[in-house]
Amino acid sequence: MLSQEIASRYKNDKTAIIQMLNAIQDHYGYLPKDEIISLSKSIMLPMSKIWGIITFYSHYKLTRPAKHPVRVCSGTACHVKNSKLLKDVFEELIEDLPEDEVSVESVACLGCCALAPVFEVNGEVHGGMTKKKVEELASELHGEEMR
């Protein structure tokens, strides 16, 4: 199990739980249940505690992410440049795509505020988004699916 390997990298030290969870999520894109159970055993931290941590931090995901995760910045700089509206437009355009294909979520600031409004697609930052760029992105994603 990956989690055992990761736990031993941190000498099974439970104070490093957040770093371990980060490493597991980096690998899978989310936190698979069996990995968490095995982690709980390796570092002797009850599942209830781990659950408390996972649900406290917004970074953690419990379901497999879509093939193309899209994150729309809702930080202040992006907000005043209407990122919410662009998100609505985008969501409408990709409504017909299956959930495991494209996912859309809001994040608070990607740290590229000078490029606002910002989308992050497959981990890549797209700055200065406009309605036109959003449409292009949506049709690109539609094209991907047909292939």
Partner: peptide
Amino acid sequence: NEGAGAFVCGEETALIASIEGKR
């Protein structure tokens, strides 16, 4: 030490709790 997405962890006592592996 990498955080995990919680604004309140910028507050020093919360930050310390987070490094200790807690909420």
